Computed example of a mutant assay.
Amino acid sequence: MSPARSAGHSARPPDFSPREFRASLGMFATGVTIVTARTAQGELVGLTANSFNSVSLDPPLVLWSLSRLAGSMSAFANGLHYAINVLAADQQALAERFAARDIDRWAGVTFTDGVSGAPLLDGCVATFECFNRSQYAEGDHVIFVGEVERCRHRDDGSPLLFHGGRFYTEHPL
């Protein structure tokens, strides 16, 4: 299938402000993840992301996105592996820490090394160890598609959720 723009079509200009767009996006409740990796020099990198989603079951693919201006862009763009850690309901402080700037995000954080060296954070409800399969630059972000090499989950945990700029915990209906 060809992109619409190659057929002479393009999107209409937005009829909303960036603030309205951000507020509207915030109405979609998401899980909260921390994406982690280790550079070739062994440095730990990690950031909070709620742009995680599944792509394919066969092969097993997931995606997440990162601002082109992120300080960790080079580490993720050039690395071969990363891990996506799906946070548990009691890990809000960890989500806030890995979203903060100018702090040591890793101080006191417990983790184990995944099969390819990417850190797997303790206490998460799920982890996905990914090969950095492909990247797509779109707008002000880069979309990373990871091929899942290993995954694990806990049956006894509830996920941390994010909606409308606030954190929530799961409450079954």
Rank of each mutant, 00 (worst) to 15 (best):
N132P: 13
V109L: 06
E20T: 12
P159N: 04
T112C: 10
V109T: 05
P172A: 13
I103Y: 06
D113F: 04
R150Y: 04
S17N: 03
H9R: 15
A4T: 12
H141A: 05
N78I: 09
S56V: 12
Y168H: 14
R12C: 02
S51Q: 07
D140K: 01
V86W: 01
E43Q: 11
T39R: 08
Y136G: 01
A49S: 14
F28R: 05
A95K: 02
S65H: 02
T33M: 05
P14Y: 09
G123C: 08
R38G: 03
R166N: 06
G139H: 09
A75M: 07
A37C: 15
C130Q: 11
P60S: 01
T48Q: 07
N50P: 09
P172Q: 13
G164C: 13
L80E: 15
I84L: 14
R105F: 06
E149V: 07
R5D: 15
R150V: 11
E147H: 11
D113Q: 12
F144A: 04
F144Y: 03
L61M: 13
F28P: 00
D15L: 09
T36K: 03
A49W: 03
F21A: 14
T169E: 05
F167P: 00
S54V: 11
F28L: 14
F128I: 01
N132Y: 06
R166L: 10
E149P: 03
I84N: 13
L161D: 04
A83P: 01
L47V: 00
S2C: 10
E149I: 11
V142D: 06
G117A: 10
A75C: 09
H171M: 11
I143W: 02
S67R: 08
D113C: 13
H9N: 14
R105W: 02
G114S: 06
F162R: 09
H171Y: 04
P159Q: 04
S24H: 10
G117R: 06
V32I: 10
G42W: 12
S134F: 03
F76P: 12
T169Y: 02
D113I: 08
D90T: 00
F162A: 03
D58H: 11
L161H: 07
L69C: 02
P159A: 05
P119K: 12
G71V: 11
Q41W: 04
P13M: 01
I34D: 04
L87D: 02
A70F: 06
V86A: 01
G164S: 14
H171E: 09
D140V: 06
V45S: 11
E96S: 13
C130T: 13
A126W: 04
M27L: 12
V35S: 05
H163S: 07
D90P: 00
S158V: 07
A75S: 15
G123D: 06
P18V: 05
D113L: 15
G157I: 02
V115E: 14
A83H: 08
G31L: 10
Q92F: 01
M1C: 07
G71Q: 11
T110I: 02
W64R: 12
T48D: 06
A100S: 15
Y168R: 08
G117W: 09
S24V: 07
F131R: 15
F52M: 05
N85W: 11
R19K: 08
D104K: 00
E149K: 11
S24I: 03
T127N: 05
R22F: 06
H153S: 07
D90V: 04
